[in-house]
Design a protein around this nucleic acid. Structure first.
Lengths: 192, 192
DNA sequence: ACGATTACGATACGGTGGGGATCGTATTAG
DNA sequence: CTAATACGATCCCCACCGTATCGTAATCGT
């Protein structure tokens, strides 16, 4: 899928990187709405044809530019429930409030309706997270820190949703105090 | 603003209604992305010019079609905190999961970046709601049912965000059990 | 060394849609 | 009767997407 095959001229790897960089720059400069394939190609020093050879459409390119694989990096679950939740809240906030992600998110969400593949790509990342949190909740339930019915999916949706609304309303509201308040509500909200 | 003035041929009021109805129909049938001004005009039995006379752009028309003023209708705050929160959760869910709203929401959110007026229009509706809930929280705090720092804005953002994510992931997950679980978390989350 | 295959830049094209303009006609206030 | 505005119909301009073409360049298998 990533490597085409053995014959023919190989793709110039610098083009892929230049295109992603150009997309990130333009996202911040002009926003998602005014982002065009030709503009990305122009800034990347190549042409549309080379981009369509790599991504099926502009939203796919933007998705890869705004949400690279390393974004949801390793975070560690520990022994204190509130600290674990705070870490996830802060991580989600940081991922959503980066200039590139904040510029790309609303537009990408709109494309999800017509590009199910993108939809799945973004949400499947949180699937593993949900599983880990579910395990953590089970442990917390045994320790008497959480009710047994606590659902990682519900908590995740609340958390991601609040961060998303925050980005739409104004990213400046998503400071550390915000993360603390949200974490407080969620932590107490799943107590037995 | 709504009434033009005294001179000249008055606008045909049936056109405004027909356009909103046509936009609602087309939103459900083809989705936001494939919705065009010409298609709305065609189905409404008029032309683009008549529509641009009434709305400055397609997103404005869609916004008015998907979120009419009566949508956030009167709900009543009572004496039981959880019941009040459940009412707001259910009301928000119902507003977001209507076929028209679910089809329009993602696209509209994307336009908010470029149309601040739309942005303010939607969120200003919740401003009054936030105020009412803040009063309710203060009363709950005095009754010992809520911590004094409970913020209506935080709770609203969590709630709206969760409903929004639900619409994006799959509206079928937003059943009454979902509303109950979310309400449980929020209710316990603001307890003293 | 050589043909097959694929990528490259440059350029062009068809199709679609937004937003506005024009024109002749219709409807209202004063 | 006149000024002002709305109407349907039509036309244009412009931007963009997605694809195609063409000559050239790079890399494979043999």
């Amino acid at each position: 899928m990533t490597t085409p095959r053995g014959a023919g001229r190989p793709r110039d790897p610098r083009i892929e990187q230049a295109a992603l960089d150009a997309a990130r720059d333009l996202l911040v400069e002009v926003g998602y709405q005014r982002l065009t394939m030709a503009a990305v190609a122009g800034r990347a020093g190549t042409t549309k044809a080379a981009l369509y050879r790599r991504w099926p459409s502009l939203p796919h390119l933007v998705y890869e530019a705004a949400f690279p694989d390393e974004l949801l990096k390793d975070w560690h679950l520990g022994r204190e429930l509130r600290a674990d939740l705070l870490g996830i809240v802060v991580g989600t906030r940081d991922a959503f409030t980066s200039p590139v992600a904040a510029a790309a998110l609303p537009g990408l969400l709109a494309e999800f309706s017509t590009h199910p593949a993108l939809h799945n790509a973004l949400f499947s990342r949180f699937a593993g997270v949900a599983e880990a949190i579910d395990d953590r909740f089970r442990a917390a339930a045994e320790a008497g820190e959480a009710r047994p019915t606590a659902s990682a999916q519900d908590v995740l949706n609340l958390m991601i949703g609040a961060a998303l609304i925050g980005v739409l309303v104004g990213p400046e509201t998503l400071d550390d105090a915000w993360a603390g308040r949200i974490t407080d509500i969620l932590t107490d909200g799943i107590r037995p």
